[in-house]
Simulated scan of single mutants.
Amino acid sequence: MARPRPSAPSGPSQRQLRVGELIRRRLSEVLARGEVHDPDLTRLSITVGEVRTSPDLKVATAFVLPLGGGAKEEALACLDRNRSELRRQVAKGLELKFAPELRFRIDESFDRMDETRRLLDRPEVRRDLDD
């Protein structure tokens, strides 16, 4: 009788989570210290909310948001323009076999949290929650 196949993992592995957090911290340091010599990038204050890595750890997607939420497209353009230098700087501070390719996306989790708060503050929802 054949054994049932194990189900596919439902989320990232512990290793992916650990490496993603290391990359997030290092990328945040690089951006905060202005280690990339681009005046457009150094004048922006960018928050790195999360970094997700591919299963093979060769691609890291950083979810970023400029301070105050403005100039999102400008921030993405600056980060994309300096992608190779950021990759070098991040790899310098980490002991990984490969320097992961960096990809940048706008972090929309703050917008989703605000929307959830707004929905929970509606009178009809508040009434149901108080019961």
Results as ranks from 00 to 15, higher is better:
L27Q: 00
Q14R: 12
L31F: 04
R18Y: 09
P39L: 11
D38G: 06
L17I: 10
H37E: 15
S28E: 09
R26Y: 08
L17C: 03
I23D: 00
L17V: 09
Q14A: 13
L27G: 00
P12T: 03
D38F: 06
D38V: 07
E35A: 14
D40A: 14
S28V: 13
T42W: 08
R24A: 09
I23Q: 04
I23N: 01
G34L: 13
L31D: 04
L17D: 05
D38Q: 08
P12I: 03
R24H: 11
S13D: 01
R26K: 13
R18D: 09
L27A: 04
I23H: 00
V30C: 00
L22H: 05
R25M: 08
E35D: 14
S28G: 15
V36I: 10
D40R: 13
L22N: 03
R24Q: 15
P39N: 13
R25H: 12
V19P: 04
E35Y: 08
E35C: 07
Q16P: 00
D40G: 14
S13F: 02
L41Q: 05
T42R: 15
G34V: 13
V19G: 04
Q16K: 08
Q14V: 10
S28T: 15
V36W: 02
L27M: 08
G34R: 14
G20Y: 04
L31I: 02
A32W: 12
S28M: 13
T42Q: 15
V36M: 00
Q16W: 06
T42F: 09
A32E: 12
V19F: 06
E21W: 11
Q16A: 11
Q16N: 08
D40T: 11
S28W: 10
Q16T: 05
V19C: 07
R18C: 07
L31E: 01
D38I: 03
A32H: 11
V19Y: 05
L27E: 01
R26L: 07
R18W: 09
V19S: 04
R33A: 09
E29G: 01
D40M: 12
R33C: 01
L31R: 02
L41S: 05
S13H: 02
D38P: 03
E29C: 03
H37T: 15
P12V: 01
G20C: 14
L41W: 03
V30T: 01
E21C: 12
R26D: 07
R25N: 06
L41A: 08
E35K: 10
G34D: 14
V36F: 03
R33G: 02
E29V: 06
P12M: 05
R26Q: 15
L22R: 01
P12H: 04
D38W: 05
S28R: 10
P39H: 12
L41H: 04
E21V: 12
P39S: 12
L31H: 04
P39E: 14
Q14L: 13
L31A: 01
